[in-house]
């Protein structure tokens, strides 16, 4: 109980004074995860739509695989990306290991299947409703995907948010490929782990509260955005 109170106090102190390290770490967390989510959505949403409107031989298998990839253990993803990016790995020459870019790559691998899978589930239902009409109107495959992406945008926002939630709280992969280097790759989750390791629970708790606040804030603001959109454009 004392730890909790001290943690809250410490968090408030950090926020009010706009502690330099804290701001830097928070911004880096946002930069990494927002970049990863942006890339993942750009890949995952169209892929989910494509999967909804396309019939091919191994479709069921592809969907099962996608759902399985949703549960990819971040630590293993981190290991995989580490091997690829390490000096002796195939992409070693790019010198990306222990940079924010490496962290973004790892998070894209974790978040894309989540966004694609959730997006596919909602667009598949929509496609079931639209199927006959869109075939009757002689739409092209691309037009069908566009219709699903546009008309399903609310649930696609939810899919993207879920991906964001997963990314912002992720530590397994980001620790391995980022290395938690001060002023370079330290983000909220890795900083919390470090503070706990050092036994600085109040600071760890403070950072945790800030992490949760960021997640809630972003969720709320997108919720408000989608509300105004609904009332405004139709």
């Amino acid at each position: 109980m004392n730890d909790l109170l001290a943690g809250l106090q410490s968090a408030f102190g950090l926020i009010i004074h706009l502690d330099h390290d804290l701001v830097e770490i928070s911004l880096r967390s946002l930069q990494v995860t927002l970049s990863a989510v942006f890339i993942s959505a750009a890949i995952g949403l169209p892929f989910g739509a494509w999967l909804s409107v396309t019939r091919f031989r191994y479709r069921r298998f592809a969907i099962a695989l996608l759902n399985a990839l949703m549960g990819l253990p971040p630590v293993v993803v981190g290991l995989f990306v580490y091997i690829l990016l390490s000096r002796s790995g195939p992409f070693g020459v790019l010198d990306l290991l222990f940079t924010p870019t490496a962290m973004i790559i790892a998070q894209v691998i974790i978040v894309t299947p989540i966004i694609a899978s959730i997006a596919h589930q909602s667009m598949r239902e929509l496609w079931f409703l639209y199927h006959d009409l869109l075939i009757s109107i002689k739409t092209t495959k691309w037009q069908r995907m566009q219709a699903l992406l546009w008309d399903g945008r609310r649930s696609l926002l939810t899919a993207t948010l879920t991906g964001f939630g997963r990314g912002i709280g992720e530590i397994g992969a980001i620790m391995i490929v980022g290395g938690n280097i001060d002023h370079l790759t330290r983000v909220l989750t890795t900083a919390i782990a470090l503070e706990v390791g050092k036994g600085d629970f109040p600071l760890a708790l403070g950072l945790g509260i800030i992490l949760i606040s960021i997640a809630i804030l972003i969720n709320l603001s997108i919720h408000v955005l989608s509300r105004t959109e609904r009332e405004g454009t139709w």
Binding site: L126, Y130, D132, S136, K138, D151
Partner: peptide
């Protein structure tokens, strides 16, 4: 087929 239209028994309405 693009010079034909079809109205279904249960109307299909796009979410817009």
């Amino acid at each position: 087929y693009s010079r034909q239209s079809f109205v279904f028994q249960a109307p299909v309405v796009l979410r817009r």
